[in-house]
């Protein structure tokens, strides 16, 4: 019986890999973009956990396969392995982890670290890489501060180096898409004085946007009460700093993931690189 099963396994293994590019082609396709079957897994899981229609609407970049994390106002799910309860979209209890430089909640940090451990075991046992991409599918009503905490917990708990991050969006007929984003170094970022960095920051508050920059030469704080007003301010900033592409987004109060994505969508032409930060200071001496 097992001899025939072994033959079947060989046949199936060929079937499972047919249609996928050869390893060389896969490598040149920058990772797992061609990973057959991942799109089905992603959409199936998002629909079960969240409902893709609840993702913030935006036609972002194609999704790079990775670990899937979902968050709605009641819980954060690390694919189907672990869950952390949320209370009205906030991590509860909110006690920070002493091991998380960004002061991300201990319960989130520990849960992610447990997941990385399992993935490390998987990597050893089955000779695969520990995934280096984390896809976050967040309900558009989730407080954006919770998104930032999730991103820091996922990044700071990963051994060796932080993963690449992508916020999933609902691209309409384009399907599930994403916004790649980065984080300000946990605990704060100090840049060399001759770095020529600007460190442009937009703090999104309920009904208000505050624009600042870490570079002393910027020397002002600007504010807007609507997205078009913000866009006008940022276009002006871009005229003076045409080589700058990044904005650090900070959130206060009940600003949601949907608010963040709407803001990003409005300014991405001038500033396509999104960086999230909580209270991490950016210093240019």
């Amino acid at each position: 019986m097992f001899a025939s099963f072994a033959s079947f396994l060989l046949a199936v293994s060929v079937g499972l890999s047919s249609g996928a590019p050869d390893p060389q082609a896969r490598a040149t396709a920058a990772g797992y973009e061609q990973l057959r079957g991942f799109a089905t897994v992603l959409v199936t899981h998002l629909n079960r956990a969240l409902g893709t229609e609840h993702l913030p609407p935006f036609v972002g970049a194609p999704v790079t396969p990775g670990l899937i994390v979902t968050a709605d106002p009641s819980r954060v799910q690390l694919f189907d392995r672990f869950a952390v309860p949320l209370s009205a979209g906030r991590v509860s209890p909110p006690e920070p982890s002493p091991e998380c430089a960004s002061k991300c909640p201990k319960i989130l940090f520990d849960t992610f670290r447990r997941w990385w451990f399992e993935l490390g075991v998987e990597s050893r046992t089955h000779a695969v890489e520990v995934p280096d991409v984390v896809l976050i599918g967040a309900h558009r009503d989730l407080p954006a501060q919770t998104l930032t905490q999730i991103a820091y917990a996922a990044s700071e708990s990963r051994p060796i180096q932080p993963p690449r991050l992508m916020l999933l969006t609902h691209g309409g007929p384009a399907g599930v898409r994403g916004i790649p984003f980065y984080l300000v170094r946990p605990g704060g970022l100090t840049l060399p004085p001759n770095s020529a960095a600007l460190g442009l920051t937009v703090t999104i508050e309920p009904g208000r946007f505050v624009v600042t920059a870490a570079a002393r030469s910027f020397g002002r704080t600007l504010s807007a009460t609507s997205v078009p007003e913000l866009v006008a301010i940022l276009k002006d900033v871009h005229r003076h700093h045409p080589n700058k592409a990044a904005i650090v987004y900070r959130f206060s109060g009940d600003v949601s993931v949907g608010n963040f994505v709407a803001t990003y969508a409005a300014v991405r032409e001038e500033f396509p690189v999104a960086v999230l930060g909580d209270d991490e200071p950016i210093t240019i001496p």
């Binding site: 293994s13 499972l16 990973l35 670990l67 998987e122």
Partner: peptide, 11 residues
Amino acid sequence: GSPVAILDALS
């Protein structure tokens, strides 16, 4: 296991 690893390495 993670689906990325399963899809990548099961064969």
